[in-house]
């Protein structure tokens, strides 16, 4: 895949919506989601070889968005501000999960180990199968099962302590 500047801009126009949609879901804040949109494509400008070596553009954008947004959630937590009070964006027109549980889930994701948090996002928010999650994370189905179990244990523990 040739990836010059014009190609990246075309990619932004054709695929930016999926990045924005997922970033809104994960971050629950319009300005933060817009920032994520810019940052994901800026990272592509800095390292276009990452996308060249990826099998799927959509898959690469899913991974990059998840990685960026989970980092943002962790950074927010580091900033001593959990996100239960953040307003989730309206999800009606673009489909997706019920917003009711999202602020709680975001705050929990910020406290989970990174790989388990990513597996939880792919499973809970994106509805991915174990095979799809394994592809996203570059691991085996068995490892996915372990990560999701770990995520669920973390969720249960964090909910109990809340």
């Amino acid at each position: 895949m040739t990836l010059d500047g014009a190609a990246i801009e075309r990619l932004y126009r054709s695929h930016g919506h999926l990045v924005l949609r997922r970033a809104r879901l994960l971050l629950g804040s319009e300005p933060d989601a817009q920032e994520a949109l810019q940052e994901v494509f800026a990272s592509l400008l800095r390292a276009p070889q990452d996308l060249r070596s990826a099998g799927s553009v959509v898959g690469w954008l899913y991974r990059a968005t998840t990685h960026f947004c989970l980092n943002q959630l962790r950074n927010r937590r580091t900033g001593a501000r959990l996100l239960q009070d953040r307003v989730a964006p309206a999800l009606g027109p673009s489909g997706g999960p019920s917003p009711d549980a999202l602020p709680e889930l975001r705050s929990l994701l910020a406290r989970m180990p990174a790989a388990a948090a990513a597996a939880a996002v792919y499973h809970h928010l994106d509805g991915m199968t174990y095979d799809e999650i394994a592809e996203m994370l570059g691991c085996s189905r068995r490892q996915v099962g372990y990560l999701l179990q770990r995520a669920q244990q973390s969720l249960a523990r964090l909910e109990q302590s809340a």
């Binding site: 999960p97 809970h124 509805g127 799809e132």
Partner: peptide, 14 residues
């Protein structure tokens, strides 16, 4: 309740 999938469809978003 967060153990349930929040994605509303049977085919994944991906």
């Amino acid at each position: 309740r967060l153990a349930d999938r929040l994605w509303p469809a049977c085919l994944s978003a991906l």
